[in-house]
Design a protein around this nucleic acid. Structure first.
Length: 934
RNA sequence: AGGCGCAUAGCUCAGUGGGAGAGCGCUUCCUUGACGCGGAAGAGGUCUGGGGUUCAAUCCCCCAUGCGCCUACCA
């Protein structure tokens, strides 16, 4: 064994061991065909992402589980991978193109997608590299990406099947639109945030000239699209207005005043403007009253022709200012006031969402949700902690259809084609219905064309390819027939036309994520992976994507595999900063996991995360704790360093006929710790496991055991030395095994370099509880009492440690006497006594300090050491404490109801406690009296 | 508006229907032959407030206060 460094330095060793594991294929599932299996699919991080604290916690937990299961005989597979993150990735690449002043439309769709792939090749595995730094034992040969060929095939298959079953459909309705990302978003992707806005009161003059009605709105610019004003039918103020019309200011339109009982009489003026094309409420009431719908804002967030020439082309926010100015001039702006309200923001870019009427693809999820609810109700899937089931149920029972189309390029393009040369069901030529808007004017025969329907463009001389290539937006109305296909098609199956137009939209990234647990294992092929590992064992994730991801995986898994995708869903907390705030770039409160790893080592960092991983909503991360656990690792390191001096006495890894009490005791404690650690991991209480090992290693093994064995190791007794060293190595080996799932690197290092093992610790068996000595703990308690008794007198009286003193221990109990006598050298050494006398009766001498412990009193003659006054005040303090405690217990014991109702053993315990205390009090008081007489 | 969660030592947090815990910090002492990234001895909490259930409540129930989160169409 090479010389131990004084401290453990992680950075040198972590990469080495990680490569060693990879080179030796230690992450590959192994085991026979009848081995039990364990499988986790990683929640795929965004390919654009870099490791943050949430990922680190998430991966640490999964790694603990995988390493533990692997060591426990399970054929274990941890599938890693990344998510193509449609909008986010497209944004990133567009931004980098913008630096070179390149617009993706100029580049064209195929070329742009090529750029994204090369971006991915260059930067996309950053997070993979970071996971490796953390020590994640993923099987990298199973690395998957949602845009892989296999996974894309799964996406295609699912889409086609759902389409064929009628569960996927197109519809024209109001959706959340991000004008910056230029795409539709699902309900979940609209984040509602309260903002401080203003409520404007606008006068709408009655057409009959009899006055006006005032409406209140937060979005005056949408008034241009108003198609009615609504009041409550029972609102006395407006009863006579119903049925009349108003002249909509700034336009030439007349709109009716209608009655609708959803109107809140008490809000604003009680009269509300209705804009069905730009507000979800208004869309609903528009439908109820058969109102027309007028889109005044377009996909860019700019005003349309419908808004009128004065406003056309203005940005919606600019338009608001102009409208307000115009209204003021016409004296139609009655008043305005501050008003805070919730506004939807794009979850990717935080732009304020614009509700727009567009045609999108939807999944009818209710039939899927029903089964998904049942699976959780019937405990085929369990949420841990259980409370999360409520959230899941609440959302699932009120689920809305899922908008899955996105108007971007990066993603799985929808496998649907439209034929412009076919006629639809009402006999119209479909080409006349398909509208194209070009990203820049196209010159043909000297004319510049900006938009038009397909047939028109064709007639003007544009080729099919030109039309498609130049289109920024292709609007295909619902009446055009969808040709959905598993394979790309170029010919219309009905009319043989070669002019097929593929739906330009791509699918929501979460659509492919929903298939992750089976698409990564090879579905739709029937693979061995699927047979071996589906359903997976547990999904580890945070609560913020229960709806986005977990719920959808459950629905898809049940639908396409007939079985839920996992048995357990372990929901861990969200990592916040030490003040409880979410970490974000803009707040500047980000703690970078890689910085933590660099400063303290991956092991210390992981161990802290495990300790923090208590069941709860959030974790406030504090760096000091990481530092604390680095010290812990150093402690372990030095324990190994300590025993390495006595390596020559290490004869056997088997323990037979253990005689020494310290050895029996520490083995018993080890046994207990093993049970605790296993119990903790099995119940996802990683903090319990981590704390149990910490407590054992530091406070029992290092603080007590090592100190207890020192005198024996310094002696010449080879027999006891051999027993101790064998025992030490035995324990230490188990400690490393127990710790391995939590701190893989240092345990592997010590396993190899210190224990000299030939195979990786990763592939060794996790400890099982075995050896235990029933009486050892009780016997050991006597040693502890003696030692801490002497130490506390020394400490409190400030007897300098270099001074060896004499102690007298008085005990009437022969068993106690025997135990103390046979461990005398340890006690003397640790308590720093030159002499310890064990007696059955002791006549108190003058000037003697005393402490009363269970089954013994300890006396220390102070003569020549210090004056007795300090001992007097120490004893008085102790008496006070005893009195306080006794009062409480006495109160309990004098309560008849307590004696009657409480379990016998509790009563006995209290009685015993009281007896002990009164003995203690008596003896302490006597001694104090004796001191006072001096 | 509805739902959920949290309030425990100076700080960050565990925990339990019957003796209040950890890490860090703090005080005093110690270069003892693994470790000062160490050791020993201590100080420090009416377990947010108020009610209820119970022989017994920090823990269960109700109310209040404060904070956080999620869902929701109040313009």
């Amino acid at each position: 064994m090479e010389l131990f460094e004084k401290t453990y330095s992680p950075s040198k060793l972590e990469d080495y061991w990680y490569n060693y594991w990879q080179d030796n294929k230690a992450f590959t599932p192994y085991g026979s065909d009848d081995s039990p299996t364990f499988c986790i699919v990683i929640p795929p991080p965004n390919v654009t992402g870099s490791l943050h604290m949430g990922h680190a916690l998430n991966a640490t937990i999964q790694d603990i589980l995988c390493r533990y299961k692997r060591m426990s005989g399970f054929k274990t597979l941890w599938v890693p991978g990344t998510d193509h993150a449609g909008i986010a990735t497209q944004n990133v690449v567009e931004k980098s193109l913008a630096k070179d002043k390149i617009d993706r439309h100029k580049l064209g769709r195929d070329a742009f997608i090529q750029r994204v792939w090369s971006w991915k090749a260059e930067y996309g595995d950053r997070i993979i590299y970071q996971l490796k730094k953390l020590g994640a034992s993923c099987d990298w040969e199973h690395l998957r990406f949602t845009m892989d060929e296999g996974l894309s095939k799964a996406v295609r298959e699912v889409f086609v099947r759902l389409f064929e079953e009628g569960l996927i459909y197109r519809d024209n309705r109001l959706i959340n639109w991000c004008p910056r990302c230029h795409t539709a978003l699902s309900d979940l992707e609209a984040e509602h945030e309260e903002i401080e806005g203003r409520l404007y009161f606008i006068k709408y003059p009655l057409t009959d000239g009899s006055g006006h009605i005032t409406v209140a709105t937060t979005r005056p610019e949408t008034m241009l699209g108003d198609t009615a004003v609504a009041v409550h039918p029972e609102d006395e103020r407006y009863k006579d207005f119903i049925g009349k019309s108003v002249d909509l200011p700034l336009t030439s339109r007349k709109i009716p005043i209608i009655a609708d009982n959803t109107v809140d009489k008490d809000f604003g003026t009680g009269a509300v403007k209705i804009t069905p094309a730009h507000d979800f409420n208004d869309e609903a009431s528009g439908k109820r009253h058969n109102l027309s719908s007028l889109s005044v804002i377009n996909e860019e967030g700019k005003m349309t022709t419908e808004a009128g020439l004065r406003y056309k082309g203005l940005d919606r926010h600019e338009c608001r200012k102009l409208i307000l100015k115009d209204l003021k001039e016409k004296d139609l702006l009655e008043s305005e006031k501050k008003h805070s309200h919730n506004v939807g923001h794009c979850y990717r870019c935080k732009t304020i969402i614009e509700p727009l009427q567009t045609i999108q693809w939807y999944v009818n999820v209710s039939p899927l949700a029903e089964k998904a609810i049942k699976a959780v109700e019937q405990k085929e899937i369990s949420f841990i902690p259980e409370q999360w089931e409520n959230n899941y149920f609440a959302w699932m029972r009120d689920i809305k259809d899922w908008c899955i189309s996105r108007q971007i390029w990066w993603g799985h393009q929808i496998p649907v084609w439209y034929c412009p040369d076919c006629k639809n069901e009402t006999g119209q030529l479909q080409g006349e219905l398909i509208e194209h808007t070009f990203f820049s004017p196209v010159k043909v025969r000297g004319k510049e064309i900006t938009h038009g329907n397909y047939t028109q463009c064709k007639d003007l001389g544009l080729s099919h390819d030109d039309i498609i290539k130049n289109s920024k937006i292709i609007r295909v109305p619902k009446s055009v027939k969808s040709l959905c296909s598993r394979f790309d098609i170029t010919k219309c199956p009905h009319c043989n036309s070669n002019n097929l137009i593929r739906d330009p939209d791509v699918l929501d990234t979460w659509f492919s994520s929903a298939l992750w647990p089976f698409s990564t294992l090879g579905w739709p092929e029937d693979t061995k992976d699927l047979r071996d590992f589906y359903p997976t064992s547990v999904l580890v994730t945070a609560f913020d994507i229960i709806f986005f991801w977990v719920a959808r995986m459950i629905m898809m898994g049940l639908k396409f595999m007939g079985k839920p995708p996992f048995k357990d869903v372990y929901i861990h907390a969200i990592v916040r900063d030490s003040k409880g705030q979410k970490m974000s770039k803009s707040m500047g409160n980000i703690i970078d996991p890689l910085v933590m790893i660099e400063k303290y080592g991956a092991d210390a960092f992981r161990f802290s995360l495990a300790v923090f991983a208590a069941h709860g909503r959030d974790i406030r991360f504090s760096e000091e704790r990481v530092e604390g656990y680095r010290h812990f690792i150093n402690k372990i390191w030095n324990a190994a360093k300590f025993i390495s001096t006595y390596q020559e006495f290490h004869r056997s890894s088997k323990l037979e006929d253990i005689k020494g009490l310290q050895n029996k005791w520490i083995l018993t404690r080890l046994n207990f710790t093993i049970e605790e650690v296993i119990k903790g991991i099995e119940s996802y209480r990683f903090n319990d496991s981590a704390s149990a090992i910490y407590q054992f290693v530091w406070h029992e093994f290092c603080d007590w055991y090592i100190e207890l064995i020192k005198p024996e190791l310094y002696s010449d007794n080879k027999l006891t030395k051999t027993e101790i060293v064998n025992c030490f190595y035995f324990i230490f080996e188990k400690i490393l095994l127990l710790l391995h799932p939590f701190m893989p690197f240092v345990t592997e290092e010590l396993w190899n370099k210190f224990l000299g093992k030939k195979t990786s610790i990763m592939l060794s068996s996790f400890p099982k509880s075995t050896i235990k000595f029933v009486n050892s703990e009780a016997e050991m308690a006597n040693l502890f009492n003696a030692i801490t008794g002497i130490r506390s007198i020394r400490g409190e009286l400030n007897i300098t440690p270099s001074l060896e003193i004499k102690a007298i221990i008085n005990t009437p109990n022969n068993e106690v006497k025997r135990v103390l006598l046979s461990n005398m050298s340890s006690i003397k050494k640790i308590a720093k006594c030159s002499e310890i006398e064990i007696v059955s009766t002791y006549k108190r001498a003058k000037g003697t300090a005393v402490t009363v412990r269970d089954l013994m009193e300890i006396y220390i003659p102070l003569e020549g050491i210090l004056d007795v006054n300090s001992e007097k005040s120490r004893l008085m303090k102790e008496l006070e404490k005893i009195d306080k405690e006794m009062v409480l217990i006495k109160k309990k014991l004098s309560n008849e109801d307590f004696l009657k109702n409480a379990p016998q053993q509790i009563v006995e315990k209290e009685k015993a406690k009281f007896d002990t205390l009164s003995t203690k009090k008596e003896k302490t008081a006597e001694n104090l009296k004796l001191l006072k007489t001096i």
